[in-house]
């Protein structure tokens, strides 16, 4: 039954949704389009949505004279290492908090929980001083180690592992399995959805992380992509098209990664919301 009223309603629903979607997408489109423009097309009015003579000049300049390959590699190394370490340590700790039996376990877990609430700025100055003392400023270690364990990931893994029935573990234990075996043979395989969730979020988070690398990576050779792009944008007289090309390089990998793994992203967020 199609009434006039419902047609109007449906149309306006899609109009709103599509308008919103355009607002979401335009900045990306504009970034990509400008990054392929020659200088003379940048200031054209009305705006040129598609460059008439697309050029790779800006990207070539970015990698050749501004050496964007280096921060790219740094970011991959740093974000990759943080992800691997974080997944490993937080699943181990999550397992222990969920299934080990020892005195003070719950009190200890509450302590971990409490630290989730602490804003990052609270720890930045002391950690900076500590790393400086250890000579870790400007090193991969300095970028990776402080970020390798997140209390939230431990909490998240514990909440997931606790839903695994004890019987499963008890049965294996009867057969003489030790904790290490349980972890690798039972916990890890069963936790795959949770593991991929924290892996995805940790990777995205460290790829995008800015304040900490800004403070730790003082040497151009240690810059991560966000730091490199912030410096590029602050540089005097730097061409807009090159800035846009730089932004593309920072944004594109995560965006592509997201489009392939979107289901995990979306499920993961719904999951983190539920667990509270």
């Amino acid at each position: 039954m199609v009434t006039k009223k419902s047609v109007i309603r449906e149309t306006s629903v899609y109009a709103v949704l599509i308008f919103g979607a355009v607002v979401m997408v335009v900045p990306f489109f504009w970034m990509v389009s400008t990054s392929f423009k020659l200088p003379r097309e940048i200031f054209v009015f009305p705006p040129k949505w598609i460059p008439s003579e697309p050029t790779l000049k800006n990207y070539i300049e970015l990698f050749r004279s501004l050496d964007f390959a280096r921060p790219f590699i740094n970011t991959v190394v740093v974000a990759g290492s943080i992800t691997v370490l974080s997944v490993l340590f937080s699943s181990m700790a999550g397992f222990a908090f969920a299934k080990f039996r020892f005195k003070g376990r719950d009190a200890l877990f509450m302590l971990v929980l409490a630290t989730i609430m602490v804003p990052g700025q609270m720890t930045i100055i002391p950690v900076f001083l500590m790393l400086r003392h250890l000579g870790l400023i400007n090193t991969y270690a300095g970028l990776i180690i402080p970020a390798m364990v997140s209390a939230f990931n431990v909490f998240f893994m514990r909440q997931f592992i606790i839903t695994i029935p004890d019987d499963l573990l008890e049965a294996a234990k009867m057969d003489g399995a030790r904790e290490g075996f349980l972890y690798f043979k039972i916990i890890l395989p069963l936790c795959r959805p949770a593991l991929s969730t924290i892996a995805i979020f940790t990777f995205t988070g460290s790829w995008n992380s800015f304040l900490w690398p800004l403070i730790i990576a003082q040497d151009e050779r240690m810059y991560t992509l966000p730091v490199a792009i912030s410096v590029l944008a602050g540089q005097y007289g730097e061409n807009i098209a090159i800035q846009m090309a730089g932004s593309c390089i920072v944004i594109a990998p995560i965006l592509i990664f997201f489009i392939f793994a979107q289901r995990y992203f979306i499920k993961g967020i719904a999951l983190t919301g539920m667990k509270f």
Binding site: Q218, D219, E220, R221, V231, L232, Q235
Partner: peptide, 11 residues
Amino acid sequence: QAIPWSGAYDK
């Protein structure tokens, strides 16, 4: 080693 002016003071 090249340091951009914007970040040079901090660095």
